[in-house]
Design a protein around this nucleic acid. Structure first.
Length: 610
RNA sequence: GGAGCGGUAGUUCAGUCGGUUAGAACGCCAGCCUGUCACGUUGGAGGUCGCGGGUUCGAGCCCCGUCCGCUCCGCCA
């Protein structure tokens, strides 16, 4: 920090070597300890604490004045750096060997009593949000925000060094036909028309490639009007990357280096490279998720070979009809409580389970020391089947095995969710510092949407099919086509994803058609990009990383709110500014906009009947 | 849209089976205190038990509704 008219040192700067010097500091009163005579003050700025001492015998007036200081008053203190009395050093402070004997004090601003104490735990989220600037003054959030700066800076430097050019793209653009809800902005100069805030700079980044920029990046604010979660905000930040003349592995290598640089800058650790890779199919088969948390096992096992001729009819018939029978072994979880069991079944039903209870086998020793297989279905299994099952799943005492028989997709969803919940119940990741990075590759290109009775893009409509699957596009094999798409995952969080794009007009046009966007609509909504592809578009691809989630994981937080200076609550409101807000009729009229919203009125007729 | 958890002093929380005047810690205010650093010490102030209704002789506690917050599902190309 540069000394200036306000101060000569910051509050974590003075050391023994300064003894005898006169210094001036500025900061907040962190605490005042008034002994009637001598008064101690901890002065705090963002760098740390320095103890200031007021002695009546040195300066009686000043000491008298210091009695009135209160926490969080803003002061400027001038004094002489002195060694602390022998035995009173404080080794918890960097400045703990010395203290400032005050000779001058200027109260820059008095502070009212704060609505909460900065040095104690605060669980009231309303208060934290309402007085966000005070919450940010606390050490934890202050550190998070500064860590976020460090990793953002590291990303920028890394990409710059790799030849990437930072370009800003419009915030006011057009709504997207697919994907999340758009935030709309009325266009006053085009009455009746609307802009949308970008969900991502997707089309612009591709047009940058057509423009010959070759390597683009942007720390881009993105907006999606969907419901919030601990790791989702309506406005969030992506590190958006696109490059020309590259293939998947080029992007993968680049991004591995980028993430390593960010974790190095933010947490000082060396992330081992390269990250493991897994196909989408494998991720779903083993973990029941396209963003597997690999910090623990409880993997999903396919039991088709074990139960091909099972004595348990439901398993056998499911297999005979093309379904799957899968199982997970929760090691050491035979002590599961009734409540936990109920919770797991609720979760499984929510995830699509057609029956009321997960089939299970619990292995415990009875009073006589005999190993018991407690299960509603154990009795249906033949001896060979039992042996094969125990062998395949490595079943031991105190294990509990859960089964699901049905369609592949349901089995993945249900067992995937149950797996995560068991890990949560067993607290398997509680004190873990593991950083399990992972690439998930070869996503399906398309998914069938029952609601619209059509195909939708799994990633987005500009994603390139894998060359060997391109012929499937537009046939009855649409669902089998895989995409040149990849996600980077950390500890069960999707950090980012991307793809190699379509750069040919005819293929892009075909893709739109498969998605049910006809020639007319294509021209209207995507004319610019289809045009662009006619004028020499290079092969290109890219990826976007969620900066908020990365900052959260670097900081060891559970919510991205802890790494965003001014976040929204789970109704997308800002309790500090009380945003969003009503606007005057006049303002709306200028925009040619009228609200159709009506406040809920209580139905008195219905009440009377009741 | 749905589910779960929570809401008691400024803050963090306790509050038994529905029963006398709703407690503690920290903070706050005032006094004392010349080596503290979570200073100590004496005293004091501070409550719409989120809000509304109901049951009851009596509700912080039970019931219904509602608001707010958090988490999750749906949703998030």
């Amino acid at each position: 920090m540069i000394p200036n008219a306000y101060r000569t040192v910051h509050c974590n700067e003075v050391r023994k070597s300064h003894i005898g010097q006169t210094v001036t500091l500025c900061g907040w009163v962190n605490s005042a300890r008034d002994h009637g005579g001598v008064i101690f003050l901890d002065l705090r700025d963002r760098e740390g604490l320095t103890q200031v001492v007021f002695r009546p015998e040195e300066n009686a007036d000043l000491a008298a004045k210091s009695h009135d200081l209160r926490d969080e008053d803003v002061l400027q203190i001038t004094g002489k750096v002195a060694a602390r009395l022998a035995g009173t050093e404080n080794d918890k402070l960097g400045t703990g060997d010395v203290e400032i004997v005050a000779t001058e004090m200027k109260i820059l601003n008095k502070a009212d009593v704060l609505p909460f104490q900065l040095d104690r735990e605060l669980s009231n989220e309303d208060l934290r949000m309402k007085y966000r600037y005070l919450d940010l003054r606390r050490e934890r959030l202050n550190r998070n925000i500064r860590t976020r700066h460090k990793i953002t800076n590291a990303a920028r430097n890394y990409l710059d060094a790799a030849g990437f050019v930072e370009v800003e793209t419009p915030i006011l653009s057009n709504p997207t036909p697919e994907g999340a809800r758009d935030f709309l902005v009325p266009a006053r100069l085009s009455p009746g028309k609307f802009f949308a805030l970008p969900q991502a700079p997707q089309q612009y980044k591709q047009l940058m490639m057509v423009a010959g920029l070759e390597r683009y990046f942007q720390i881009a604010r993105c907006f999606r009007d969907e419901d919030l979660r601990a790791d989702r905000q309506p406005e969030f930040t992506q590190i958006d990357i696109e490059a020309s003349f590259i293939q998947r592995d080029d992007i993968v290598t680049l991004v591995e280096g980028l993430l390593a640089a960010m974790f190095k800058a933010g947490r000082g650790i060396d992330v081992p490279l390269p990250f493991p890779r897994m196909t989408y199919q494998e991720a779903m088969d083993r973990y029941g998720s396209d963003k597997p948390d690999t910090r623990f096992g409880i993997e999903i096992n396919d039991m088709a070979d074990v139960f091909a001729n099972s004595g348990f009819k439901i398993f056998k018939s499911t297999l005979d009809n093309g379904g799957v029978v899968r199982a997970i072994n929760a090691k050491g979880f035979a002590g599961i409580t009734t409540g936990q069991m109920i919770r797991l079944n609720e979760l499984a039903i929510e995830a699509g389970m057609k029956v009321k209870q997960l089939a299970f086998i619990k292995v415990e020793r009875d009073a006589n020391g005999v190993l018991e297989y407690k299960s509603p279905l154990w009795k249906f299994f033949g001896e060979e089947e039992k042996a094969a099952l125990v062998q395949k799943l490595g079943v031991e005492e105190n294990d509990i095995v859960f089964f699901y028989a049905g369609e592949w997709e349901d089995a993945c969803n249900i067992l995937g969710r149950v797996r995560l919940e068991i890990a949560h119940m067993q607290q398997l990741t509680k004190d873990s510092t593991a950083l399990n990075f992972l690439w998930v590759v070869d996503f399906p290109l398309l998914a069938f949407d029952a609601e619209s009775n059509g195909w939708v893009a799994v990633h987005h409509p500009f994603t390139r099919p894998k060359a060997e699957d391109e012929h499937l596009l537009g046939t009855d094999q649409n669902g089998k086509a895989r995409a040149e798409a990849y996600d980077v995952v950390l500890n069960g969080y999707e950090l980012g994803g991307g793809s190699i794009r379509i750069h040919e007009g005819d293929l892009q046009s075909k893709m739109f058609s498969v998605l049910g966007i006809g020639p007319e609509e294509q021209r209207h909504k995507f004319g610019h990009i289809l045009d662009a592809f006619r004028f020499g578009a290079p092969p290109h691809g890219g990826l976007a990383l969620g900066l908020d989630r990365i900052a959260m994981l670097v900081s060891g937080e559970d919510s991205i709110r802890e790494v965003i200076a001014f976040p929204k609550n789970n109704k997308a409101c800002d309790l500090m500014t009380d945003s969003p807000t009503n606007v005057d009729f006049k303002q709306l009229r200028e925009l040619y906009v009228q609200s159709t919203w009506k406040p809920k009125v209580k139905d008195e007729a219905a009440d009377a009947k009741a």
